[in-house]
Design a protein around this nucleic acid. Structure first.
Length: 481
RNA sequence: CGGGGUGUAGCGCAGUUGGCUAGCGCACUUGAUUUGGGAUCAAGGGGCCGAGGGUUCGAGUCCCCCCACCCCGACCA
């Protein structure tokens, strides 16, 4: 009854989005709050989603020639300070161990906020010759960033992610790597998580501390805010020089390699909730759903029906479908709502009527439509239906996102449109001061400069400055989580 | 760190100008009947009222001081 009220209470989703979001995370049993403020416990159901994401990314990394490795969680604070912009960016949010083994440490240890520095420390030992390049490493790890405000999956003090770190012989190769991995993220997010992604380059103000260029994929939440859902950095020689990673090239000269790094985190689960959730709770695309099909016998009193459901469950599992059956003694209606809240893409309701007619009733999570499937060859019908749900979820999310990206050409409309829950696409002068002024006054920031730069105008929508031909950038402005 | 708010059962809350054995809904346990959209009835278990100090015959309630958490900023994946 309480959860029923929950559904009614969250009807006003647009005005109370953060609460709705948190409720869905907790009630769908994805995560719990951790013992330390800002930390999170990922529950088995949430972790199963993460495992599916991991599996797909690892598959892609294998294809792109990256190898998994692991580096320490603790390293000396001095590592962080080697690259000037890097330490300035991370110092405010780094957690430091000062006491261990029963005494004050003479050298403070950092809990990694990211691993560029500790990895560079090792790279300097590994790379001596052009023959050692490229180095293409990926690490699955946890990192710690002491944020002021936190929200499960979207921003927590500790989070899980993968971080790729590569070294290359040439600028061209490193830049190609940066963009290749960005496209991998775009592919996974779009085709696996069914979330439309806006791909582009970060402004100077928003780029990674220590990078030459940062690229990102941005996704949209239900209330029209932006989520940086993946980043890829071209680091140039900023770190390789700071860590003295030198090698001899074919000409015998000592040179510094070109470097990249890139990462996605458990925030992707947050993006998933934000993109597909509705008043009934979570909705998961089949490719990522821990449970793709839930079987609900309408009654447990009929032994023949229960046996039939169990057989069907096994049959579906044998066909490679992640199916489960709920034999708990809750009412059928309770189970319907429970698995809708948990985002299971397809539900099979099987009762005596179905058994008599040789069919099963299904209900889709994406459209909530009900229909019937005949028993014969049901596996293939279901596989087809799951594919259709996957495609439909991307289609719906794309339409929704596109309808909230609005072109404007002056500051007043920019602010008004963003505050109404949209992204704006504008021509922007590229001046950091212009961007900072807007942020100070309105909390609106540039999210990225999309690769598609067509439709540029000769005036900055933000500050009104006149631009010459070729000046300025098409830029997306929004509020963000 | 600023501005605002809340701490009473696992969760959500009520508790009047101080008064008797601290209550309600949900959840949980047991039993029965149920099960095509969050079942019903009956019985039951669960409390250092955030912590400390004070006022009082008497404090969940009043005063002081801590502490924790939430929301809005600042900061950020």
């Amino acid at each position: 009854m309480q959860d029923n009220q929950f559904v009614k209470e969250i009807a006003d989703i647009e005005t109370n989005y953060p609460q709705w979001y948190t409720d869905v995370v907790l009630k769908a049993e994805l995560a719990d709050y951790g013992p330390v403020k800002g930390t999170m416990v990922i529950r088995p159901y949430g972790y199963a989603i993460w495992e599916n994401i991991q599996k797909e990314l690892d598959r892609q990394f294998k294809r792109t020639g990256h190898q998994n490795a692991y580096f320490p969680m603790l390293f000396p604070y001095s590592y962080l300070t080697r690259e000037k912009e890097h330490v300035e960016g991370f110092a405010p949010e780094v957690a430091v161990v000062t006491y261990a083994g029963g005494e004050e440490l003479s050298e403070k240890l950092v809990l990694r906020p990211t691993s560029e520095t500790v990895i560079c420390n090792m790279f300097s030992k590994w790379v001596k010759s052009y023959r050692d390049l490229p180095v293409k490493i990926n690490q699955w790890a946890n990192v710690v960033r002491w944020e002021k405000t936190t929200r499960p999956f979207l921003r927590t003090s500790e989070f899980l992610w993968q971080e790729g770190h590569t070294l290359h012989d040439t600028v061209e190769e490193a830049r190609a790597e940066t963009l290749q991995m960005l496209r991998v993220y775009e592919d996974v997010v779009t085709n696996f998580l069914a979330i439309p992604a806006i791909v582009g380059k970060k402004t100077e103000k928003e780029k990674f501390a220590g990078a030459v260029d940062t690229y990102s994929i941005e996704t949209m939440t239900r209330d029209g805010k932006s989520l940086q859902s993946g980043t890829s950095h071209y680091l140039g020689q900023n770190f390789t020089k700071a860590f003295d990673i030198r090698y001899q090239n074919r000409e015998g000269q000592f040179v510094y390699p070109e470097q990249t790094s890139w990462g996605v985190s458990t925030r992707l689960i947050g993006a998933l909730i934000c993109a597909h959730g509705d008043q009934r709770g979570l909705a998961l695309p089949p490719k990522i759903a821990p449970i793709q099909v839930i079987l609900v016998p309408i009654t447990l009193k009929n032994d023949g029906l229960v046996a039939f459901c169990k057989d069907l469950n096994t049959k579906l599992q044998d066909a490679g479908i992640r199916a489960e059956i709920d034999l708990s003694d809750n009412s059928a209606g309770f189970k319907f709502n429970k698995y809708e809240l948990k985002g299971v893409p397809l539900r099979l309701e099987i009762g005596n009527r179905d058994l008599d007619n040789g069919v099963v009733t299904y209900c889709r999570r994406d459209t909530l439509e009900k229909g019937t499937l005949s028993i014969e060859n049901i596996e293939n019908q279901i596989i087809k239906l799951l594919d259709e749900i996957q495609a439909n979820m991307l289609r719906i999310a794309t339409e929704k996102t596109n309808s909230h990206i609005i072109d404007v050409d002056n500051r007043e409309d920019l602010v008004k449109t963003v505050n109404a829950g949209n992204f704006v696409r504008v021509t922007w002068c590229g001046d950091r001061a212009c961007e900072e002024k807007l942020k100070d006054e309105t909390a609106i920031t540039s999210r990225c400069m999309p690769f598609d730069q067509t439709g540029k105008k000769n005036i900055c929508a933000c500050c009104g400055k006149k631009l010459k031909d070729g000046e300025g950038y098409i830029t997306l402005f929004a509020k963000s989580y």
